[in-house]
Design a protein around this nucleic acid. Structure first.
Lengths: 355, 355
DNA sequence: GGTTGGCACTCTCTAGAGGTGAGTGCCAGC
DNA sequence: GCTGGCACTCACCTCTAGAGAGTGCCAACC
């Protein structure tokens, strides 16, 4: 299933079948009601016919291996990150989504002229059906191919550059020039650029431009100088880079494990700061397939009490972004995993299909 | 001073000078350290030389008038909304901002080609210097005047419409037409529209268009039909309407009066839902000058523990938006009021001054 | 030898009791 | 009208006791 070999993968070897089964029921139970699970409960819950005493022996082993821990002497056991990891990697049984459910998701992700709208819809969708926070990384300009460029003269040495990319997305930029250009000068420059570069990736355009600029300028005619001036600014590297859409943050306030207001504030600050979350999502962009970060695995302290489930989505056959869900470590992985997986597929489909 | 006669205004009549002075020190003290203020403290703090016992008599009067309340029998007094209202309306002494402070605010609100950027800067600025949440209502399209319109043909009966408004703001819209138009057809349509409507307000353009559409179509030539088709869509009423920029929400998590996670969630949900906050800001848009909503005065339950200080800002000599600060009722009004006031002025200045 | 019941032990949680301190309301006297 | 005195109230803290849940260990059983 969607869970590929993961950097954090823990082998289930060294754990007999019974221990695995018990770990599984323990975690399922803990996910269900958030209380430490004791041996008596476990004995009733598991299909194994074992007395609490026997189960205690197994628990002692699991604790020694660092898969579970008891918050204090007389409480039941709670899974550790390592425990969750093993659960997710080798014990989990995924419930595939119902057809009905998939269809209703599909409705919310209909194709549109504005990709931004679909991305936001995906983020909302994720947050709504999981009751956690949904996140969608916005495709970077790098992946975009130029369809058309136009220039409009504004007053005071300013020119409005309009880029149409990917057939239906539009970007504007106001650039400042050394002198006022006439409408027709700009028209000519645009024609030249469209002829030369339509269909190419933006970063290719940028590189080629840089190269041409390097060549002796004296050789160039007036038109080329104009073109070079406006184009170099138009296609200049954006410093901003990547960004994401986050929805349903407030859902996270509903969970007890987030009840600590300082921890919560740290998390929300991280959402606003964006850097850490972006970095995490970028990582998932590289890996192929669904990714799960459990608790401290993410490497960011603010996410210590959270798990993040991500999946990349595509435009054409190229991965352009990642989407996912952020919630408490104690989340229903068996539901969240297929939800993230399906949403990624549906989003890809919607993006590839013009309105 | 910035505080205009307010709908909630309470007359200070019926309160002798001493009572006023004591209410003032009580509220100042309470704002400073958030604890109920007792008669002993008040006796030491106020410049009046009165024993605690005398002060208790005054307190009893103030309590009867509903200006203060004691959380329980043996605690000091805490101001009520009505108390804050009187404080703000007639007792408050405003500290004007230092020149230095104003200058450093000015730096963060430099003019820019992108008004959106300045608005965001204003919001951040407000949140940073007050350590509360800053909010800026985005000007509605209604207030914008058309400078230029252009059309680019896309594939599949789609046309990209580009509006340049207010000299330096750009808006895009993809519209769907009944047939493919050629570049030159669109160019002609754009020329016509620019000639007719440049400099007019968008809503004027819309009205005139509707009128022309109503006239018998048969009289029109091909060009006019084209023009009407693309223009009517381009200038169609936006359903979205108004929106705002909110920064520093997480600052609100620092205050004890917001420590209740459910109340906090309600507030954050309201921020996301936007409707209530927008409505409140719209109200302030109508009123001229600085406005203060204390606690329940706003009329929205989620804001019961908050105060909102707003001020409109202008483009040219027309009010186009509102900005403000949202924080706990117990805020330093004497600082917040001039900050909001000055920020509104600086923002207006920055917007009216092209880069 | 794995499994089980028994048992002592540990730890959290809750409720109640008692003490302390801050602050009040009221009253009599200045 | 102001003030000191005094009884009273209430939140808050600490301490204690008891209940409940669950554990670890051990000896016995199959």
């Amino acid at each position: 299933m969607a869970s590929p070999p993961n950097a954090h993968h823990i082998d289930s070897a060294g754990l007999n079948e019974r221990a695995q089964a018990l770990l599984k029921t323990l975690i399922e139970r803990y996910i269900r009601d958030g209380q430490p699970v004791g041996s008596r409960t476990l004995s009733r819950d598991s299909s194994l016919e074992l007395s609490p005493a026997s189960i205690r022996n197994v628990m002692a082993d699991l604790e020694e291996m660092g898969l579970v821990i008891s918050p204090h002497t007389s409480a039941g056991r709670v899974p550790t990150v390592k425990g969750y990891r093993m659960f997710v990697d080798s014990l989990l049984t995924i419930k595939p989504l119902g057809e009905q459910e998939v269809r209703s998701m599909e409705v919310q992700l209909r194709p549109s002229d504005e990709p931004q709208r679909i991305l936001r819809a995906a983020s909302s969708l994720l947050s709504e059906i999981t009751s956690m926070a949904g996140v969608v990384l916005i495709p970077r300009r790098e992946h975009e191919s130029l369809r058309q460029v136009e220039f409009l003269p504004l007053s005071h040495n300013r020119v409005l550059a309009i880029l149409v990319v990917n057939e239906r997305e539009v970007q504007n930029k106001i650039i400042h020039t050394t002198r006022d250009y006439s409408s027709s000068e700009l028209q000519q420059a645009a024609n030249y650029l469209n002829q030369q570069f339509a269909g190419r990736a933006l970063h290719q355009v940028r590189e080629t431009l840089l190269q041409e600029m390097g060549e002796a300028r004296t050789k160039m005619n007036e038109l080329m100088l104009t073109t070079i001036e406006v184009a170099s600014q138009t296609f200049a590297e954006e410093e901003a880079g990547s960004d994401y859409l986050l929805e349903g943050q407030t859902n996270l306030m509903g969970y007890q494990e987030m009840a600590d207001i300082d921890r919560l504030r740290g998390l929300f600050d991280a959402f606003n700061r964006k850097r850490d979350i972006l970095h995490l999502l970028d990582q998932s962009l590289g890996a192929q397939g669904l990714q799960i970060f459990i608790g401290e695995e993410s490497g960011y302290q603010v996410l210590d009490a959270c798990s993040v489930v991500t999946s990349p989505y595509k435009q054409g056959d190229q991965v352009v972004g990642v989407l996912g869900v952020i919630g408490p470590t104690r989340m229903a992985y068996d539901r969240v995993i297929p939800i993230v997986d399906v949403t990624a597929r549906l989003l890809s489909a919607a993006l590839n299909q013009a309105h």
